[in-house]
Amino acid sequence: MKRPGRMFHEVMRSMFRKAATVRYPFVKVQMPARFRGRLKFDASKCIGCKLCMKDCPSGAITIQKVGDKRFEAVFDFARCMYCAQCVDTCPKKALEATGEFELAQLDRGKLIVTFKNDCPVAAAAAAPAGTATATATAPEPKSDAHE
């Protein structure tokens, strides 16, 4: 049975319904509780086992020792693919995925974030972007060579 204009009723009904479009930048979108967004690092819980570094598929995490049993993390959110494997890997639950997803930046340096004592400091603000990138990527070949 063929009927031209089969969607007529549906289409006319839409005229009187609210549009399905979400006016996104004006209306904020709430992510579900399990959403894997931007990572958060709790430096006080970190024991420096570096398992997250080892498991990260895109090499976005660098854990640095800054003192006796004190560690800080440098995250490169431009490389991160938001799989949150590090959150699962961490034995001390020092990492957490937040619902934050609006991460676009014009300056790559702003995506490299150093977590110190629970408070994130953008590397670009703390130090010139170039040096921050260098510290973030430099340890990689070394650790590879060890294995």
């Binding site: 289409v11 006319m12 839409s14 005229m15 549009a19 399905a20």
Partner: peptide, 9 residues
């Protein structure tokens, strides 16, 4: 056209 497709337009 948009409203008929349940869009904002």
């Amino acid at each position: 056209y948009a409203r008929l497709q349940n869009r904002l337009g």
